[in-house]
Amino acid sequence: MYIAMNRFKVRPESTDAFEKIWLERETHLQTLPGFVEFNLLRGPERDDHVLYASHTIWRSHDDFIGWTRSDAFRAAHANAGKVNREAIYLGPPEFEGFESLQTVKADSTE
């Protein structure tokens, strides 16, 4: 399993705009080999920003790389250049990728 995360520092006055961009976009993720799950997470609020993270789970690192090279990736990010980044973000997003070493799941026998 591979987990790809982007962390975004969003200006407090721009959280509605940020959430609208993400919640109304077409992701195209469900059509891709190896895609497992996507989550948009809202984290702690600070004086100058609210922390968000996009969290995508892939079957493998190769599946994630396939996504980044796909037409679906280009389509999902086509409008990114139209956003006034300085008005919404406090700096660029920070990417973090993780290979899973251990997975523990809830007992599903209940």
Rank of each mutant, 00 (worst) to 15 (best):
N84T: 13
S108P: 08
T103F: 05
D107A: 12
N39W: 07
P33K: 05
G43P: 01
L29D: 00
G43L: 03
P93D: 05
M5Y: 00
V36D: 06
N39L: 10
I3D: 00
A53Q: 10
V50D: 01
K105Y: 07
E19N: 11
S100R: 09
D107T: 07
E86Y: 09
L23D: 11
A4H: 09
R74V: 11
E94W: 05
L101M: 14
E45A: 13
Y2C: 06
H28I: 03
E99A: 12
L90F: 08
V83Q: 02
L40E: 02
V36I: 15
I21G: 06
N6C: 06
P93Y: 03
F18C: 04
G81K: 05
S54M: 04
Y2T: 03
D62W: 01
E86W: 08
A17L: 11
W22C: 09
D71E: 15
S54D: 09
D71A: 14
I3K: 00
R69V: 06
K82R: 15
G66A: 07
E26C: 10
H49F: 12
T103E: 13
E13L: 06
T68Y: 09
D16E: 15
H61Q: 12
P93F: 04
I3V: 13
A72E: 08
S60G: 03
E13C: 09
I65C: 07
D62K: 08
D63P: 07
E110I: 12
E24Q: 10
E26N: 15
E86T: 14
R46C: 13
T109Q: 11
K20Q: 15
E19I: 07
D63A: 13
L41W: 03
L23V: 09
A17K: 07
I57Q: 04
H61W: 08
P44T: 14
T56K: 00
L101C: 11
I88M: 05
E24G: 07
Q102Y: 10
G66C: 04
F73R: 02
N84I: 10
L29K: 00
K9S: 13
T31G: 08
R42P: 08
F35W: 04
E110A: 15
H28T: 01
W67K: 01
F95W: 15
L23S: 13
Y52A: 02
F8N: 00
A87K: 14
L40R: 04
V83P: 02
N39A: 10
I65L: 14
D48G: 03
A106S: 14
L51E: 13
N6P: 01
Y52L: 05
Q102E: 12
L51N: 09
K9D: 13
A80K: 06
E96R: 12
E110R: 14
F8L: 07
I57K: 04
T56W: 02
H28C: 04
F73D: 01
R25W: 03
K9M: 14
H77S: 11
W67D: 00
Q30L: 10
R69G: 08
M1Q: 05
A76Q: 02
D47S: 12
F73M: 03
R7L: 15
D48R: 09
L41G: 03
A53L: 11
G66S: 10
A53G: 04
E96P: 06
A78T: 11
V36W: 04
V10M: 07
N79F: 11
F73E: 03
T27G: 05
A17P: 01
K105L: 12
